[in-house]
Design a protein around this nucleic acid. Structure first.
Lengths: 126, 126
DNA sequence: GTTCATGCAAATCGTTTGCACAATG
DNA sequence: CATTGTGCAAACGATTTGCATGAAC
């Protein structure tokens, strides 16, 4: 796939680079509506996908478009297969002191954390 | 809010407790359709929300129903405010050896990981 | 018998897509 | 001029909700 330049896409990238927040598509749409009065949300989504493909921006996701549930038993981390999307519980011990360590470093109060590890599961590795 | 018991809700909890997978609502729906032929997806969703409220199950999420984007610069972790949903980049150094450590422990190949810390941000703390 | 839960269908919301036209190289 | 990007509107898929009926306490 070959990409051409477009003023819309360049403005989206510029806008994302200029902010420390983690915008949603509609936030971007609202901002750029001033520069491009005829802009459509579809264009924003299309360009966000292209920029992600190009590795110029990151989409913050958990590896699934579905809500997923689990019966709470004990704290644990997750391993998510990048190919098939399966989620596995890990036995790796939870870092209990991590919240406190980071709280001190950042000067905020952290109550909990989640870690997702990504890679290929047994089946997809073959 | 007061909750009554319902056979549907109890079966959903039982099902979630009996599996090591991380089911979606429709997977649960399919399984329970045998026991409750008139079951509706709405009921599954309602009960999943109630069970989550009661703390009996976990919903695996990243703190946002919107896709969020950021311009990639350097690896970092995220802090997410449990109240307002804001996402902040942390300066805490990334644990480069974590992938390898966990890979050895679990005997799988981990390529990357994400950490989200949760708590209350400056504004919401007040 | 009052309140909560259910089934059903319609509505909602974020995101994607088909199409005709405009912009890029 | 061949191809990619745009705006617009319709479609999509996961989740939620309104309503009349049924179950729980």
């Amino acid at each position: 796939m070959k990409f051409r330049r477009s003023r819309q896409r360049e403005s989206i990238l510029e806008l994302l680079r200029s902010t420390k927040t983690h915008p949603t598509a509609s936030w971007i749409y609202d901002k750029l509506k001033i520069e491009f009065p005829r802009l459509s949300l579809g264009t924003v989504y299309r360009n966000l996908n292209i920029l992600t493909q190009q590795g110029l921006i990151n989409k913050i996701d958990c590896g699934s478009t579905f809500d997923r549930y689990e019966a709470r038993n004990h704290p644990h981390y997750h391993f998510i297969c990048e190919q098939c999307g399966s989620i596995f519980d890990l036995n790796t011990p939870v870092m209990k002191n991590l919240n406190n360590r980071v709280s001190e470093l950042e000067n905020i109060t952290i109550k909990r954390h989640m870690i997702e590890f990504f890679g290929l599961c047994e089946k997809c590795k073959k």
